[in-house]
Each structure stands twice: as C-alpha cells, then as structure tokens.
Nucleic acid binder design. Structure first.
Lengths: 238, 238
DNA sequence: TGGCGGTTAATTGTTGACAGTTTACCGGTG
DNA sequence: CACCGGTAAACTGTCAACAATTAACCGCCA
C-alpha cells in the first residue's frame, strides 16, 4: 500500500531535485502573489521571506530576479522587489495579448486538429454548459481556463504555451473579476461551440477570428462592468 | 565641449544606477550569448564569469536565473546554466510566434495609425530599397528589424513589445541566417509596402493577414534554404 | 584489455557577515 | 507650529567561505 507520506512528500522531493531550492522559493513566492497573500504594491522583504521559508537570502534574491523577468514583481534598485499591480490600462493590454495569442493558437491548431481534440473540447464545453445552468461561476471559470489551455497545448508550440501561461498569471494580478452574470456564461459558451466548429472545419482564418472575438467580447464585458462599478461607486477623489 | 569621457562613461553610470550590477551582469552575459561569444551548449561557469566580470558569484547567479526565465539559458540542477541552442523545430516555433505577434501588432496599430507613423515606416522602406539594390544584406537586416520594431512600438502595448523582443533575441540563437538572396530582399520589401498600405487603410484584418503572410513567407524561404543546404551538405551520419 | 570502485579536483548550492543606501525618528530652531 | 539637520535602525547589495554534489581520473581486478 502506497503510504500517504509518499503522496505528500514525493512532489516536494521532486521539486527539490528538479528546481533546487531557488526554484521552490520562486514557486512559493509566486503562489503567495497569485493567491493575494502578498497584495499588489507590497514589498518583498528578503529577511522576512528568508525566515518564513527557512532559507538564506541568496535563493530569495535569485527567485525575485526570476519573478521580475517574468513580470510579476518590479525591481527597484536599493529598495527591493514590489508586487506588481495592474490598473485598468494594464488589464486591457493583457486582454489584447490574450486575444491575439488565443486566436493564434486556434489558427495553428485548425490545420492539424484531430477528432480526439474535438472530443476533448466538446467534453469540456458540455461540463461548462451544466456549470452555467447551475450558475456555478467557480467551476465555470476553471473549465473555461481548461478549455483555452487545451487549445493552447494542442497547438503544439512550447513558446506559445509559455507566453500564454505568463499572460494568465499576470492577469490574475488584476483582482477585478467575479463580476459576471449568468447570461454572460451562456454567451461565452456559445462562442466556445463556435470556436470548436471552426476548428473542426479546419478553417485557420475563421478559427482565428472567432477566437479573437471571443476574448475581445470578454474584454468588453469587463470594461462595461468596470464602468458600471465606477458610476455606482466612484473612485476616491470626490 | 563634451568630453569623450562623458560619452563613454555616462551609459555605464546609468546602468549601475538603474540596474545595479546584477542587471549589468545580466546584460553582459546576454550580449556574450547573442554575439556568439558563448556558443550554444556552453556551460556558464560561475567562477570564470565572476573573475572575468570582476564580481562575486552572487550577481552572476541572479543574472543566470533571470536569463533562464527569459529563455536564453537552461538551468540544470547541480550542473549550472547552459546556453540554449535552437534546432530547426525550435526555429519554426519562434517563426510562428513572430508571425502571430507581428500580425497582432499590425492589427492593433491599424485603427490608431497616424500619418506620422506612415511617414516613419515609408522612410525605413525607402532606405531598405536602396540597401536591397546595393545588395547590402547587413544594412537591410538592420532596417528590417527597425521596420518591424517600429510597428510593434506603435501598437502601443508594452506586453507586446516585451514578448516580441524576447522572440527576436531567442531567434538570434538560431545561427542559420545569412542565406538569403537579393531577390528575397526585393520581395520582402514589396511585402513591407503592402503592410504599410493596409495600415494606411486602417484595415485591421487585412493588416493582420499581410503581416502574418510576410513572416510566414520568411519562414518558408528559410526552410527552403535549409533543405537545400542539407542536400548539398548532409548532416553528420552518412 | 575492458570494466569497476575509490579517490580527488572542480563546480554548484547555500550560508552568514560586512558595506552602502534609504528611511524613519527626534530634537533643535526659526 | 512647521521645518530642517542629524542620528540610528532597517534593508538591500555584495562578497568570501563552507557544504554538497558531480565528474574525471587512476589504479585494480577479472
């Protein structure tokens, strides 16, 4: 019988072997940032982190450098690393990039798509449909991520995957989602079906267009929600 | 009279103030890699580098972490950092990404393009025309980079710039270019004129298409050249 | 002669200490 | 009371030394 210890420890050992402390520290800090444990603007105090993670400052600094390169923190000379925050303009930038990258993935996948791909995507869409009917936003969002990740992976371009993941992580710094309605879920999933349909036709150009439009509509939905929010609850300054 | 000392030293001071050693080290190692001074597969020996750059191993390690995150080196636990090399499949990946990103930039620029942009692009194209006629490949390539960088910058999306720069750097690891013909230069520049024309029409979709096709044709030209090269000079194993 | 085990040199991983900079605090002064 | 200068604490930047791992080398044995 496989002991529960193995299950718990194995990943840690693997992490230590493959990523060598600096790497685990990086992943841990990244987790803290993405979970909101370290809020935007917060300074990453090297001493505090080194004590909390029980390592010296060397690996902490290396991890911060890597996180700075990936765009999650901002390095200020002689002051340290600060958790990046996204304002509305930043979020729009990330949305535009996600639209382009998502659409590129679809257009790359279209010519090489297999029935297996289509089946996989259909299954996710069906699950999303049920989540939408139940207004289960949490599950819907997870499935939505899975859907797009599926297309990205299937496009078979490791650079594409890396860049997309980076964009998704960065977008999570923008803590203004949770403001969608059920109708949006239904709309969104209808668009998903369209995307799969164009993929099945192996139409690269159309796959690009509908995928881009899908994300662009998401961007517009968010902009609208933000504008509404601003009117109801104006930002500080009045 | 501005002394030559100022000209030489000023950038160094600025680098030290803004990037703080780790940053300069990173830039310097990056330069060594991109210039070919450190060939693909080479291990970055921390002690050697620290002696050569007159710093301790700390900053070197931080720089390597950052370079690993940006994709120029590969980190192997307990062995160190190795300069990445691109095989043909990698180059194809980067080409596809560059096509998508370049085209996305054009499609983003199209709706907001200004006469000033058009003039700037025309000027670069004219210079390229002269370089092509003179078969000056070096100058043509520089101008070509400038042309695309111009569109990227004008698209006004900092993430786009960052990702594009990353792709260009990575592509430079693929040391198999220099095998283009004058006719290709002419063809390429004709495509540039088409791109500017579609931008001037503010046609987002057409801008995307012609830009994507432009890079895709570059990819095909390179694949063809590589195939020819392989036939004339088969890889080791025969 | 070919492979195996142990030893040693080289290199990475990690740590703690020291130097330089920034920032907060506090008393003095106009 | 506001402002300014100086001092001290906290923090980042850098470094050199130590521990752990890897790889090469060499003698030994079948």
């Amino acid at each position: 019988m496989k002991s529960s210890i193995d299950i718990a420890v194995a990943p840690t050992i693997n992490q230590l072997l493959t990523h060598s402390l600096s790497g685990v520290v990086q992943q841990e800090i990244e987790r803290m940032i993405l979970s909101g444990e370290l809020p935007a603007g917060e300074r990453l105090n090297e001493s505090v982190l080194s004590r909390k993670l029980s390592v010296s400052r060397g690996p902490i600094r290396e991890a911060c450098r890597a996180l700075a390169e990936s765009g999650l923190v901002k390095l200020v000379p002689n002051l340290g690393a600060f958790v990046k925050g996204l304002d509305r303009a930043d979020a729009m930038e990330v949305y535009d990039m996600r639209a382009g990258v998502t659409a590129l993935a679809a257009s790359l996948l279209a010519p090489i798509v297999t029935p297996s791909h289509i089946r996989g995507l259909q299954r996710i869409i069906d699950k999303m449909e049920r989540a939408a009917e139940a207004s289960d936003f949490a599950v819907f969002n997870l499935l939505n991520l899975e859907f797009h990740e599926f297309i990205i992976e299937a496009a078979n371009n490791s650079r594409l995957v890396k860049i997309y993941d980076q964009l998704v992580k960065e977008f999570r710094l923008f803590r203004m989602h949770g403001l969608v309605q059920q109708s949006a879920l239904m709309d969104s999933n209808r668009e998903h079906r369209t995307i799969v349909a164009t993929l099945e036709e192996r139409d690269s150009r159309k796959s690009y267009d509908v995928s881009f439009e899908h994300v662009a509509k998401g961007k517009q939905r968010m902009m609208l929600a933000l504008d509404t929010l601003d009117k109801e609850q104006p930002p500080p300054g009045d």
